Amino acid sequence: MQQNELDELKTMVDLGTQFYVQAHIPDTKYIYVNVGFGFHVQFTLDEAKEFIDKKEQQLQSTADKYSRDADKIRAHIKMQH
């Protein structure tokens, strides 16, 4: 939206169980982001991008931790056999 300087947007919105409806967004200055636990926060596009970058880092860190934990468990299982 920022790169193409879109002032308005047409999109498809999932209302649940893959039931989509067409939506018209007349003003793209703000965007709602699902921040978890069913909460949506209104951000400017720059704020949303910053939040998403931080959230992506946090999720990657969590995924890396789980991968390390799984590797330890696999190594422990191999030692037992």
Rank of each mutant, 00 (worst) to 15 (best):
K10M: 06
K10S: 13
K10G: 04
T11H: 07
T11L: 14
M12S: 04
M12Q: 12
M12F: 08
V13T: 04
V13Y: 08
D14H: 06
L15P: 01
Q18M: 06
Q18G: 01
Y20C: 00
Y20I: 03
Y20N: 00
Y20S: 01
Y20G: 08
Y20K: 09
Q22S: 14
I25M: 05
P26R: 04
D27I: 05
D27W: 13
D27G: 10
D27A: 14
D27H: 13
K29A: 10
Y30I: 03
Y30T: 07
I31D: 06
Y32A: 14
Y32T: 09
V33S: 11
V35L: 10
G36M: 03
F37A: 12
G38T: 04
F39A: 10
H40W: 15
Q42S: 07
Q42N: 07
F43C: 04
L45H: 13
D46N: 09
E47A: 08
E47P: 01
A48M: 09
A48P: 13
K49G: 08
K49R: 14
E50P: 00
F51A: 04
F51L: 04
F51K: 07
I52S: 11
I52V: 14
D53F: 00
K54S: 14
K55W: 04
K55H: 12
K55N: 13
E56G: 06
E56K: 10
E56N: 13
Q57I: 05
Q57T: 05
Q58P: 02
Q58L: 11
L59S: 08
L59F: 07
L59G: 00
S61P: 05
S61T: 15
S61E: 15
T62R: 15
T62N: 10
T62F: 12
T62G: 05
D64N: 09
K65E: 14
Y66D: 02
Y66K: 12
S67T: 06
A70F: 14
A70T: 08
D71E: 12
D71T: 02
K72M: 13
K72L: 12
